[in-house]
C-alpha cells in the first residue's frame, strides 16, 4: 500500500515523534539505564497515568499562570510595538533599553520578584510576561516600521493624518507579524512561568518537577517535562491556526504547512 503524499505530510510529525520514542525506549532498555538517571518513555507514561490527578492540578495551575502572563505580554507588547513602530524617536530612545532588558536572564530576576511579591503565582505571571513580551514588541514595531514609503506617500498626498495611516495601513499590515510573534511568545511564556515555579512556588509543574527531582523521582520529572511540552505545542498550534485564519492574505503559498 502506498500512502498519498498528502497523508504522509499530515502524519509526518506524529511518525517522527513515535520514531524518537521508540529509539528512546530501545536505548533505555538496551543499555539497561537506571530509571533514576534516564527513565524509559514507557515508565514515564506509566508514572503519568498513576500520578494523573496531581499532575493535572499542577499543570492547570501552570497553564493559567502562563496564560495570565502571556495576556499581559500581548497587551503591553502590542501597545509598545505600536509606539515604537510609529515613532522613530521613541524607537531610537527605547530600543537599546529593551534589548538590554531582554538580554538579562529572567531566572536572575525571579529572586527580586520574590522579595517584592512573595512566593507564588505573581512572580510566575510576571516572569512569563517579562520573557514573552519582547518578541511581540519587536514584531509589531517591525511590521509598522517597514511600511512601504510609496504607500505612505499615496495616503499622505490625500491628506491622511499619521493616525489614519496607522489605522488604515500600519496596523492591518503588521497583523501577520503580530500573530507570528504570538506563537513564539506563548511558548516563551511557558518557559517563564515554569522557571519561576521551580525557584519560588509551591504549586505548578515547575514546583512538581523540583520536588520530584529532590527525591530522585526521575520518571515524574520527565512526565512533567512532557506535559509542559505538550501544552506548548497545543498553544503554538492554536495560535498558528488563528494566524492562518485571520491573516490569510499574507500566507498564500500552496505548500505552507501553516
Amino acid at each position: 500500500m502506498r500512502l498519498s503524499p498528502k497523508v504522509v505530510f499530515r502524519l509526518a510529525p506524529w511518525l517522527l515523534t513515535v520514531f524518537l520514542l521508540v529509539c528512546w525506549e530501545a536505548i533505555c532498555q538496551g543499555f539497561e539505564i537506571k530509571p533514576f538517571l534516564f527513565p524509559a518513555p514507557s515508565l514515564v507514561f506509566k508514572t503519568g497515568v498513576e500520578m494523573f490527578d496531581p499532575i493535572m492540578t499542577h499543570a492547570i495551575h501552570t497553564f493559567l499562570t502562563t496564560l495570565a502572563g502571556f495576556a499581559i505580554a500581548v497587551l503591553v507588547g502590542a501597545i509598545m510595538g505600536a509606539l515604537l513602530g510609529s515613532s522613530p524617536i521613541i524607537y531610537k530612545a527605547l530600543y537599546p533599553m529593551l534589548v538590554g532588558f531582554n538580554s538579562v536572564p529572567k531566572v536572575a530576576f525571579v529572586p527580586v520578584l520574590v522579595v517584592w511579591f512573595g512566593i507564588g503565582s505573581i512572580p510566575a505571571i510576571i516572569t512569563a510576561f517579562l520573557i514573552s513580551f519582547f518578541p511581540v514588541v519587536v514584531n509589531v514595531a517591525t511590521g509598522l516600521a517597514t511600511l512601504e514609503p510609496e504607500l505612505e506617500d499615496v495616503l499622505r498626498s490625500l491628506g491622511a493624518s499619521r493616525f489614519d495611516i496607522l489605522c488604515k495601513v500600519g496596523l492591518p499590515r503588521s497583523m501577520p507579524y503580530f500573530f507570528a510573534s504570538l506563537k513564539v511568545a506563548v511558548t516563551l511564556a511557558f518557559v517563564g512561568s515554569v522557571i519561576s515555579e521551580t525557584v519560588a512556588s509551591n504549586l505548578g509543574i515547575g514546583y512538581l518537577m523540583m520536588s520530584a527531582s529532590s527525591t530522585m523521582n526521575m520518571p515524574l520529572v520527565f512526565a512533567g517535562l512532557m506535559v509542559i511540552g505538550a501544552m506548548g505545542v497545543v498553544m503554538y498550534e492554536l495560535f498558528a491556526l488563528l494566524e492562518h485564519r485571520l491573516t490569510r492574505w499574507a500566507n498564500r503559498s500552496q505548500n505552507a504547512a501553516f
Binding site: 510609496e150 504607500l151 499615496v154 491573516t247 492574505w249 499574507a250
Partner: peptide
C-alpha cells in the same frame, strides 16, 4: 499612482 501598484493585500 506609482510603478508598484501598492494595493493593500488584505
Amino acid at each position: 499612482a506609482f510603478q508598484a501598484p501598492n494595493l493593500l493585500p488584505w
